[in-house]
Structure formats: structure tokens, C-alpha cells
Amino acid sequence: MQIDRRTMLGILAGSAMAGAFPAMAQSKEVFIATYPGSVDEGFKAVVGPQIRQKFGATSAFSPMLNTDLIGRIQASRNNPPFDVAIWDNGPIITAKQDGLLEKFLESGSPNYADMPANLRDPDGFGPAMALTSIGIAYNPKKIKTPPTSWNDLWNPEYKGRVGIVGPASTLGTTFLIEVAKLRGGSETNVEPGFAALKELVANVGAIPPNPGALTTALSQGQVDIAPNFFNNVAALKARGADIAFAVPSSGLPLQTVTAAAIKNSRNPELAQKVVDLLIDPVVQAQLEAAPWIMMPANPKVALTGFNRDVGATVGDVLKRGIFLDWTKFIASRPSWVERFNREIRV
């Protein structure tokens, strides 16, 4: 097929107009970095329409890993590609140190008053908008007695059935610290944790490279019991897999997902409003429902469905929860990763 010049001009003009008009009609656009998977889908379905309705602005969501996000903001600090982002406990420390975040204007946030003290960023960069919890995932068809403690992974009956991941992931770091604590260690002394992991090797059937692959290993029967994120378990359970989640008796390790505005945003006011919107009880309740199953951070939101496996209310979850202080061990983590690589092998 030959395209003559007139047709080509027509196509060009048409696409230019299609591109130009919405931009003229709605001058404001907010760019939000999310996490890959159901979080991104939930944000697109719930948060996007709310931003249009409440602020008359359009929104664009990009799912990516926090590390990737830090790289992209650093590459263009004066004109960052995002206005708002959500952050895990580890990477947000790097983002703060590198000066990538804008402080949260608490006075301008009607919903901030709802947030308990431990869900507010200690340096004033924003509220937690969601919680992720870590516990024991297991296959109830194969593991007949529901586990109650991390110590259950050492049960000789589970020889070859246990899965773990290394401390390069939040999951592996948390598991290592929790096990260390059970054996007299702490966030800064993981020596007993490594000793315990060496004993665990006899039971370990797989060390997948990351939590996602560990979840796959659980769903494919490669292993039957493993530390895992509640969200991963809930997602599999929702699809009908044989998987259950147990809260360890030593407490439920919690991570916060903090919403923060990015420094040098083109729409700083809108960015602040979006952060507030993310902790709005209405938005939070919609994200809490299936199929997103996010654990909300705002205690006003009631828990339903699978989230009730973790606690009856957000307050209840927080009461059972343990927050690790990432600032205490973020510097030692690289050496833990190397030590795990070196020592925990067959």
C-alpha cells in the first residue's frame, strides 16, 4: 500500500489534534509511581477516577521497583518523572538521604489526623498508606498442624519441604532478624539468626532467588512451608490455591508502604493532595476490597475477606505487629547478603 502525502498529512494532523485537545481541556496531570501487580491495577481502578473527580486532574500510573524509581528520579532531579510515589521501608531511607522527597504538609491534610504515630514517617515525609505483613505460608493439605511459630520450620517432619529466601529481599531480611530475635539476637545482632539458618538447611527444599519465585515454588508444590508476604498468600488463595497464612506467635512483622511527594514536582500542591487522598478512608476501603486486598493503614477502614486472616481491625493488626527499624541495619544489610550467599548453601 502506498500512502500519498495528503493521507499522511491527514494522519499527522489528526493524531496531533487527538493528542492536543485532552491536554487543553485538563491542564493538570499527576504522575504516580506504583508497585507492579495488583497494587498498580488497584491504583488505576480506584485512585485514578478519584483524582479526576476530586481534583479535576488526569493521572498516569507506572508500576516499577523502588530501586528503579530512585534511579529514574536521580537521573532527572530538577524535572522528576513522577509527582508522587509509594515506598518500602528500605528504599525510602535511600530516597530521603538522597534528597528526592518533599516533606508532607500535615496541616493541609484532612486525613492525616486519622493516622497513628507509628504510621507517620518519623522525618515528616508522609503517611503510611498500606501495610504489608510477613508470616508463615503453608499448604494446608500437606501441613496438617497449622504452624504457630517460626520455630516450626525446624520441625524434622518438614525435611526438604521448607522454602526460604536470602536477605537481598525485605522478606529474607525480616525472616533473618525474627529468627535471630527468637535465639537471643536483635536487629543489629543477626549472628544467632545465621547459626539457626545453617541448622535449617537440612529442612530446606528450595532457596528461590526472590519472594515472587518462592510464592511460585509454594503454589507448584516445590515446597510446602515458607516465610512469605501475606499479600502473596492472599493473591494465591483468591485464585483457589491450597495455601494458608499463619501469624507467628512472636508477632507479625509489618512493613509500611509510605506515600510521599517527590521534590521538584511540577504540581506540588496537587501532589500533596494526592498523598492525602491515598489515606482517605473511602479510597482505602476500595483498595482493601477484593480483588486488590490491600491492608489499609487508616484505622477507620474496616477489614473484610482475607484481610481478616491477619486481624479483626487495622488497630488489631497494629497491636500484633512488629516494626523493624530499618535505619539500624540498612548499612549492614549488604554484608548479610554476602554472608547468606557464602554460608547458606548445600
Binding site: 530501586t67 528500605g90 528504599p91 535511600t94 537481598a168 549488604p334 547478603v337 550467599n341
Partner: peptide
């Protein structure tokens, strides 16, 4: 995997 752990896991990009 070693490079991935250093970059994505523990944010030691230079290493």
C-alpha cells in the same frame, strides 16, 4: 544474580 542483589536488593549501584 549477584549483580541484581547488589543493585536491586541492597542498592549498592556502584559496586
Amino acid at each position: 544474580l549477584l549483580i541484581y542483589q547488589q543493585a536491586i536488593g541492597v542498592q549498592k549501584w556502584n559496586a
